[in-house]
C-alpha cells in the first residue's frame, strides 16, 4: 500500500441513541503510518467512532472505511487487519497469559505454529515473557493493559485502534505503554487512539482531533493547534492572600476575559496588558507557554476534565 493513501476514512458520520447524538457528523482521514489521536472528554464520541471503524456498532449516516473496506459490511475483514484495544482490558481470567493471546490468533484463523510463534514475539515485545503461564488476575494493571495491546497485535495488524490506552495507569506504566506505541509507530503501523490526556496526545500523535459533543472541533498537528488556537503564552494569576472579588473587579476593569479554576485565574490571551493588576497586593502573575489544554479550553470553553 502507498504510504500516503488514507488508511482510515470517516465521512459525515452521524450516530444517534434514543436521547442523544453520540457522533454528530464527523469526517477525518488517517494516512498510512500516521498516529492520530482523538482528544476529548467522556461522551465526546471517541469510543463510538472507534467502534464504528471496527464494524462493531452501527451508525445512522455517513461512510466509514479502513484500508478500502467498508466498515458497514466488511467489519470482519477490517478486524482481520486492524487490532482493536478496548477501554476495558477484557482479558479472559479463565485463561493464562499465553492462552489469552493464542485465542485471538485462532479466532483470526492463524495456524497453530504461527500462533505460538506470534504469541512468543508479542510477549517478548511487551516484556511479559516471564509471565507467559501466569494467571491474568496475578498481573498488575500496567501488565494487563500491555497484554490487552499485545492481544491486538496477534494478527500482525496494519492498523491499530486504542481506546484510552493508559487511562487508570500509574505514570510509570503509562510511560511503558507510550514506549511500545512509539515503537509500533516506527514499525509503520497506522494508529488511531483516543485519550483524554493532553501529554499523551502531544507525545504520541502526529495529528490530534479535538472532539466534544460528537464533533471534531479542530484537527491538526499538536504544535499547529497550539499556534492557531492558543497563541504563544497564557497568563495565570494566583491568589496569594487577596480576595477573589477584588481580582475579578480588576480584571473586568482591564477589559480582560478570564477563567477561574479554583484559586487560579487564567487569561488566555498572553499579550493582554495587565500592568494595572501588578499593583494589587496578594496576587502573583505568571506567564507560561501555551499547551494543548489551552487549545481545548479555547475551543470548547471548558477544561478537559470537566464532566
Amino acid at each position: 500500500m502507498n504510504e500516503h493513501d488514507s488508511v482510515i476514512r470517516v465521512n459525515g458520520v452521524v450516530k444517534r441513541y434514543a436521547d442523544l447524538c453520540a457522533i454528530d457528523g464527523i469526517s477525518f482521514a488517517v494516512q498510512g503510518g500516521e498516529t492520530v489521536g482523538l482528544l476529548g472528554p467522556n461522551g465526546a464520541g471517541k469510543t463510538s467512532t472507534m467502534r464504528a471503524l471496527a464494524g462493531l456498532s452501527p451508525w445512522d449516516q455517513g461512510q466509514v472505511s479502513v484500508a478500502g473496506l467498508d466498515a458497514a459490511t466488511e467489519g470482519r475483514r477490517i478486524r482481520q487487519i486492524m487490532g482493536v484495544v478496548t477501554q476495558h482490558d477484557g482479558l479472559d481470567n479463565e485463561l493464562n497469559v499465553t492462552q489469552n493471546l493464542e485465542l485471538f490468533g485462532y479466532l483470526a484463523g492463524v495456524s497453530r505454529t504461527a500462533v505460538r510463534r506470534r504469541a512468543r514475539e508479542v510477549l517478548e515485545f511487551f516484556s511479559l515473557t516471564g509471565r507467559a503461564t501466569d494467571d491474568v488476575d496475578d498481573l498488575s494493571g500496567g501488565m494487563k493493559r500491555r497484554l490487552a495491546i499485545a492481544r491486538a497485535l496477534m494478527i500482525d495488524p496494519e492498523v491499530i485502534v486504542l481506546d484510552e490506552p493508559t487511562t487508570g495507569l500509574d505514570p510509570h506504566s503509562r510511560a511503558q505503554v507510550w514506549e511500545k506505541l512509539a515503537q509500533l509507530k516506527s514499525a509503520g503501523v497506522t494508529v488511531l487512539m483516543s485519550t483524554h490526556y493532553m501529554d499523551e496526545a502531544a507525545i504520541l500523535c502526529d495529528r490530534i482531533a479535538i472532539m466534544d459533543h460528537g464533533r471534531i472541533l479542530a484537527l491538526a498537528p499538536p504544535h499547529a493547534l497550539i499556534e492557531r488556537y492558543a497563541g504563544g503564552q497564557v497568563v495565570e494569576i494566583r491568589l496569594d492572600g487577596a480576595e477573589r472579588q477584588i481580582l475579578r473587579d480588576a480584571l473586568r476593569a482591564s477589559g480582560v476575559k478570564w477563567r477561574e479554576l479554583g484559586a487560579l485565574f487564567r487569561v488566555l490571551d498572553g499579550d493582554t496588558d495587565l500592568t494595572a493588576l501588578q499593583e494589587l497586593a496578594g496576587v502573583r502573575i505568571e506567564r507560561r507557554a501555551t499547551n494543548l489544554e489551552d487549545v481545548f479550553l479555547r475551543l470548547t470553553g471548558k477544561e478537559l476534565d470537566d464532566e
Partner: peptide, 17 residues
C-alpha cells in the same frame, strides 16, 4: 459471566461475527 466481565464483547474485536 463472560458478558458481565466483558470478555464476550472483547472476542468480537477479533474477526468473529
Amino acid at each position: 459471566n463472560r458478558i458481565q466481565q466483558g470478555t464476550m464483547e472483547t472476542m468480537l474485536t477479533a474477526p468473529v461475527t
